[in-house]
Amino acid sequence: MKARVHVMLKNGVLDPQGEAVRHALGALGFDGVDGVRQGKVIELDLSESNRDKAKVSVTDMCEKLLANTVIESYRVEIL
């Protein structure tokens, strides 16, 4: 079973990298980009075959390592 974790900065946390990307898009002539937020996608191959158990386990991984919950939020998808 595969899982996909999306890690994003929480709303309200300034994202300097996203801002740099937004500026670069403007420099390339892409007008009208009001905001860019940059995050991470992490894909996991799991031996677990029970979806609920996989979700619990991956959520625990997010809390303990994959996301820094001071500044980041995460979303777990079981594929």
Partner: peptide
């Protein structure tokens, strides 16, 4: 707390 990317990149 945590340490993020420098504001000026």
């Amino acid at each position: 707390g945590t340490l993020m990317r420098n504001s000026e990149i």
